[in-house]
Each structure stands twice: as structure tokens, then as C-alpha cells.
Design a protein around this nucleic acid. Structure first.
Lengths: 111, 111
DNA sequence: TGAATATATGAACCATTGTTCATATATTGG
DNA sequence: CCAATATATGAACAATGGTTCATATATTCA
């Protein structure tokens, strides 16, 4: 058998892919980053505005944005001296929402 | 307005929930843990068998399992001296698969 | 009960990571 | 060009996290 695309299957998942997968989830596993992601789900925003909104340093935000940018989760758009960041990956919202649903369902004790 | 359950909405998400969400994604953000989770997606398995299969120490596996058990992601079942672990949360498969699909799509350059 | 086997746990250790501080780079308006 | 503003970046630091080692606990079988 070769490939049963989609759905849950019992095929072997390579170590490489599992590693990438854990690396991918890492982006969502930090409070600052997930707050940034949540903000960007509503639309693009400048670095300073993000920092102000989260009440954390500009540098911290910039460092995290670099991480996300390097991995193509966010995309910068320069307008004059301000840089606006937006989500660069359509799947991010889905991952975020899937996790969020889990948390909320658990909280409300809904199976 | 009170609550628009489900789907994507633009309601405020509390800091607490965002924190919990990042904590939840943390379980998937380590190679060892995600490999354990992947194994358990196929069904329950004993601690030693997991360690053997992953070729890592029994202690390391046990430590990670405790973490997952404490957070109710896995559930132990004792049979004699061996303890079998199984996934204890129906949403785990969904999260895993959602992330996996993202990785695979990205790899195959399918938008 | 005592040896053997399976799992759990605590402490120590090293690596990773997120923040801060200082500073560099970039852009605009005067 | 110069001052002001916005963002980026490197180094240092503290905290967190995952593994290992040694040992404890639990269970079965002879």
C-alpha cells in the first residue's frame, strides 16, 4: 500500500515529520506568541501597537515576530517606518480554533 | 451579546484561556511527547514497550507520561505489574491530525 | 517471604528559551 | 543631512524543561 491521503490512518509517520510537527506546535505553546497570534487573527497590526496592546516590551514582541516570520507564520508589510504584521498561513486559524474549542469544552465540562 | 458558541468569532478571549491554550499546545511541542501521543493513537501500550519502541530510557518515558497523565491527556490501566497507557482525551487525535495535515500540506507545497 | 520485573520519582545537570538592555538600522519630515 | 520615530538585533541573564542516575514502590511467582 502506498498512501491513503487524508483522514486518520495507521501509516508510519516519519521521525522527521513528527519532529516538524512538535516544532510547529511550539509556536502556539508560549503565552506571548499565542496572544500575538490571537491579535493577528483579527487582522494586521504594527509592532508597537501589538506591544502596547499586550503591555510588553517592543523588543520582546519583535523577537517573537522574527521567530514567527522566519517560519512563515506571519508576514511583514512595511508602510513608511511602521511595519504591519499579518498571519501568513491560512491554517493557523484552524489550529488555534481547534485547540481553543478543546479548552472551552473542557472548561464547560462538555465532552 | 452573550455567547456565539462554536465557529470563529471576534469575541474577547480571556488571558486565562489564552494561557491555558498555550499550556495545552505545550504537550504537543516536544518530540518525545508527540511520539508517545502518536503511538497511543494506535491504541494503549505499556511503559516499557513505549520506551523500547522509541529507543529512549524508561525513566524519560515515565516522566513524560506523568506529565500527560496529570493533565488528563493519557490514562493508566494496571494489569499485574505492567501499566498500560491510553489516550484519555478524544480531542487529542483531532489536534494531532490538524497539525499533521498542516505539515504535510506545507511539505507537498499544496496550499 | 524474597527475588525478579515493571513503573515511579526525586535530584542533579545541561540545554533551551523568553525577556531585558543597549544599540543598530531604517524611514520620514524639516 | 539631521532629528525623531519605528523596528530589529545581539548579548547577557534568569527561568524552564527534558534527560539521566539512583533509588523507591508495587506486583507476581517460586
Amino acid at each position: 500500500m502506498k498512501s491513503t491521503k487524508g483522514k486518520t490512518n495507521k501509516e508510519e509517520i516519519s521521525l522527521d515529520v513528527l519532529f516538524e510537527l512538535s516544532e510547529f506546535f511550539k509556536f502556539f505553546s508560549d503565552t506571548t506568541r499565542i496572544r500575538i497570534i490571537e491579535i493577528l487573527l483579527h487582522g494586521e497590526m504594527s509592532v508597537n501597537d501589538i506591544a502596547d496592546k499586550l503591555k510588553i516590551g517592543q523588543s520582546a514582541v519583535s523577537h517573537q515576530l522574527r521567530l514567527l516570520r522566519t517560519s512563515h507564520l506571519v508576514r511583514p508589510r512595511r508602510d513608511g517606518r511602521t511595519v504591519f504584521y499579518a498571519l501568513d498561513d491560512e491554517h493557523i486559524g484552524l489550529i488555534f480554533q481547534t485547540g481553543l474549542n478543546h479548552i472551552l469544552h473542557k472548561k464547560r465540562a462538555l465532552p
